[in-house]
Simulated scan of single mutants.
Amino acid sequence: MILRRWLVLLALVLAPLAGAGTALGHQQKITISTIAHNPRTGMIEIIHQVPVHDAEHALVVQRTGNADIHTPDIIGSEDSREAFARYVTRRFLFQLNGAIITPDYVGSEIVGGSLFVYQETPAPAEGALRLRVNSQILTDVWARQENRVNLGNGTSVDTLIFHGGDAPAEGDLPR
């Protein structure tokens, strides 16, 4: 429930950006991932936002040699959307308190001009939430790709920025 409310707020804040990119018809070459702790569920929730136009162009590029991708239609083809969501989860590396974590895939959906991919993992019951992340989503497609990772939500957010080949970065996730 809190994830959906947070998603709606995020979508409202970012809607002008998504609409502008779609209207112009070119790649934005930017993704935004948000990592937040949900104290009610005890989970760390990860939301990746990728412009649909960028995702579809990436599918065309990646289609050669990838049997998972049948057609580059994120909106009309659930298979394409799920194939791209799997790609997103593979290109996002995540460590929690020094341990490599593979967050569970929760699902994906289209909101406005963006594809949202959801993941989650249990948070330790106590102690710090020290994260080490690296977002390389679409950096294998475009050299100028920029990926922003927001740690936290509300007024307590730190942003990490990644480009192709960047090393992982660390930050604390507020509880």
Rank of each mutant, 00 (worst) to 15 (best):
M1E: 14
R4S: 14
L7K: 04
L9S: 11
A11H: 13
V13L: 04
L14C: 08
L14H: 12
P16W: 04
P16L: 05
L17N: 06
A18N: 10
A20T: 09
T22L: 14
L24V: 09
I30V: 13
S33M: 13
S33F: 06
S33K: 02
I35K: 03
H37K: 00
P39L: 05
G42H: 03
V52T: 04
H53M: 06
A55G: 14
L59K: 00
Q62C: 01
Q62K: 14
T64M: 03
G65D: 10
D68W: 04
I69Y: 02
T71M: 02
P72F: 01
G76R: 04
S77K: 00
E78I: 06
E82D: 15
F84Y: 15
A85D: 12
V88E: 09
R90N: 10
R90G: 10
R90A: 12
R91V: 03
R91L: 13
I100M: 07
V106S: 05
E109L: 12
I110K: 05
S114A: 11
F116M: 11
P122D: 13
A125N: 09
E126L: 02
G127K: 04
A143D: 09
A143N: 00
Q145K: 04
E146T: 12
N147H: 07
R148D: 08
L151D: 10
L151W: 03
T155D: 15
S156L: 02
V157W: 06
L160C: 12
L160R: 00
I161M: 10
H163W: 03
G165M: 03
R175P: 13
